[in-house]
């Protein structure tokens, strides 16, 4: 049997080169990690008919169906067309519904379960993930984005190129406060200790408050209520071999519109500065090379941030490099 396959195209089509010759695996995108159950039948069919009857749940919240013969790719792409159409119906720009996934560089936008279920979540994470998906997919640039409902960061937005963390401005009505201090004790114990109790009322230190909204949840009288929704954007976190590190805060108190625009602008930045001699270059390394200032200028182009927004002047990345050798005796 002759196997003459353009692996670049194969990968772009969301299949992978595996350790077993001629055998591939398909990754199903699940934007926002929330999938209509009707697609399960298709995933099941692919796994049973073409794969080895198993499915792997990826760290980015997709499904990876292993054990597929490379020869069957066209058939499978046709079979999964309802899933692709589903994306299209959500507004994602896809031309050929029958051709499988048009790109795989920009990864599935993952999300914690968000306020459809979780009481802590400050917004509907799946909905935002879908909006982002619409904006950036299909795209070959290697970018990882995740959105999370609150600073608990269950989706680990801090390990992404762009992480979006839900914020809420807690609004205090002193006339409704009975001084039970549930909010104060909780913020001290579980969050950052931004609240103090003075003169029988609660005082919030806006510099310590991370706008998680726990005080609102704890208040028996609704003395704390929800103000506007905002987002904290953390950037350039990563795992990977060279220099793993947590993302750092780029902007606090951004609104949804700015979040989307900034993400969009980041693709222009990549386009402009990517090292085209390489096979692929991860956005984090581009920023490392070009500098945060340039990145900031480019991504904030035409962005109208809310008045409250705060933008980082510079970012000190920690993370580590293996050659430092400091962790050994």
């Amino acid at each position: 049997m002759i196997l003459d396959i353009d692996t670049k195209l194969l990968k772009k089509n969301a299949y992978r080169v595996t350790k077993q010759r001629g055998i591939t695996a398909l990754r199903i995108r699940v934007p926002g990690g929330h999938l209509n159950i009707k697609y399960f039948d298709i995933i099941k069919e692919v796994a049973e008919k073409y794969g080895n009857g198993t499915v792997h749940i990826t760290t980015r919240q997709g499904f990876e169906i292993p054990g597929i013969s490379m020869e069957k790719i066209d058939e499978i792409n046709e079979l999964i067309s309802p899933i692709i159409r589903g994306l299209k119906d959500e507004g994602v720009q896809i031309e050929d519904e029958e051709g499988g996934y048009p790109a795989a560089g920009t990864r599935n936008v993952s999300a914690c379960i968000g306020n459809r279920v979780c009481p802590f979540a400050n917004y509907d994470t799946t909905a935002l993930a879908l909006k982002i998906e619409k904006l950036i997919y299909p795209n070959d640039y290697h970018v990882k984005i995740a959105v999370t409902g609150c600073p608990n960061d269950c989706i680990k937005a801090h390990m992404q190129d762009i992480g979006i963390i839900g914020q809420v401005e807690p609004i205090y009505d002193p006339s409704r406060c009975i001084g039970c201090q549930a909010c104060v004790k909780n913020c001290k114990r579980r969050v950052t200790g931004a609240l103090t109790f003075e003169n029988f009322k609660v005082v919030r230190d806006p510099n310590r408050c991370i706008s998680c909204g726990e005080c609102i949840l704890k208040c028996p009288t609704s003395a704390w209520t929800r103000g506007e929704k905002y987002y904290r954007i953390v950037i350039m976190g990563r795992t990977g071999k060279k220099n793993p590190r947590l993302a750092q805060t780029f902007i606090e108190w951004a609104d949804e519109e700015s979040v989307l625009k900034i993400i969009k602008n980041m693709y222009d930045f990549i386009d402009k500065y990517i090292d085209k001699t390489l096979d692929k270059e991860h956005v984090g390394y581009i920023v490392d090379r070009e500098g945060f200032k340039k990145f900031k200028e480019e991504v904030l182009k035409d962005v109208k941030l809310p008045k409250k927004a705060k933008v980082a002047n510079h970012i000190d990345y920690t993370g580590y490099r293996y050659e430092r050798n400091t962790i050994y005796d």
Partner: peptide, 8 residues
């Protein structure tokens, strides 16, 4: 509107 303890 929107004043419940949970978002939305």
């Amino acid at each position: 509107k929107g004043k419940g303890s949970f978002s939305d």
